[in-house]
């Protein structure tokens, strides 16, 4: 047991845990904001795959067009990252317009988008992994700065910015207000549509970033990347105490939720627990977290 504890608490393993939750964490920041408005985004897993594929294709296109001399250029890297963010943002605009302007249910819109984006990822990549990415791009997923992997830095930055925006800015307050009571927010003169639309676009940008990071980490864009991520992300948000009804919660909770689930996965791995059983255990823990939250609230009212 103590050997197990030693293995778990080693610095290397802790960084492992951090790295393993990086992509889920980045997505969790956006998902928290979306859920705070009273919405949901089921398409993030597909969005990660599509933005990764488009990023890789963009890198190749720019590369074959420009680089003939062989000296590494920054251009393909920028193109790839820009393409990933653009794809993510486009998904956010699509969802945001449908939800905020057309008042379609977020659940259904993003369910549709989940299918559309996954299909496009397979179409664009012909179902094949797109590899041979520029080294500069791969740095996003594989680089190490001050001993810490770049994805971990990026995730930390996303949580930092996400926390600041939600807790300290007018826009963040309006996100809570829209989720807390949309009619009240609207009557108070808040541009509830704009706030909702903006939140989905910001979430889309984070999906694009997550897609770039995952692709860079794998060294290749895979059309079935991020399969089922939407559920892991929502689990992290909910375990972190954010209410699915909106208006209540924080990205710090989501961070705790992601860490909690990542740690559990890791510990079960180290303890050599049957991987099938691991899924069951993780599910039970999510259930307990949610039930615990319910009981705590019932106790108070």
């Amino acid at each position: 047991m103590s050997a197990l504890a030693g293995a778990f608490f080693s610095l290397g393993n802790l960084l492992n845990v951090a790295l393993s939750i990086a992509v889920i964490g980045i997505l969790g920041v956006g998902m928290t904001a979306v859920i705070l408005t009273g919405g949901i985004d089921l398409s993030v897993g597909s969005g990660v795959a599509l933005s990764g594929v488009v990023a890789a294709l963009a890198a190749h296109a720019v590369d074959s067009g420009a680089a003939t001399g062989g000296s590494p250029s920054l251009l393909p890297v920028v193109a790839a990252l820009g393409a990933a963010l653009a794809v993510g943002a486009a998904g956010g605009v699509f969802t945001g317009v449908a939800v905020a302007r057309l008042r379609a249910p977020a659940f259904l819109v993003t369910l549709a988008l989940l299918s559309i984006e996954r299909g496009l990822a397979f179409l664009f990549s012909s179902g094949q992994a797109v590899s041979d990415l520029p080294a500069g791009f791969n740095w996003l997923g594989q680089g190490i700065v001050f001993g810490v992997p770049v994805p971990v830095w990026l995730t930390a930055a996303c949580f930092g910015v996400g926390w600041f925006v939600l807790a300290r800015t007018t826009w963040g307050r309006w996100i809570y207000a829209v989720g807390g009571n949309e009619a009240a927010a609207w009557l108070a003169g808040i541009d509830t549509r704009g706030v909702t639309l903006g939140t989905y676009v910001a979430n889309g940008l984070l999906v694009g970033l997550a897609g770039a990071v995952l692709t860079a980490r794998l060294g290749a864009a895979v059309p079935n990347a991020g399969l089922g991520y939407e559920l892991d992300v929502i689990a992290a948000v909910v375990v972190g105490g954010t209410a699915l009804t909106g208006g209540r919660g924080s990205v710090l909770g989501t961070l705790a939720g992601a860490v909690c689930i990542g740690t559990l996965d890791n510990a079960l791995n180290l303890a050599n627990v049957d991987p099938y059983l691991q899924r069951v255990v993780v599910g039970v823990v999510i259930l307990l977290a949610v039930l615990g939250e319910r009981l705590r609230h019932r106790g108070r009212t």
């Binding site: 309006w174 207000a177 807390g180 009571n181 009240a184 927010a185």
Partner: peptide, 19 residues
């Protein structure tokens, strides 16, 4: 139904318009 965000604080509800 139409004015308060019931679970939010007095502060948040008071400054909603003037934020």
């Amino acid at each position: 139904a139409s004015a308060l965000m019931p679970r939010d604080s007095v502060r948040v509800n008071t400054t909603l318009v003037a934020l």
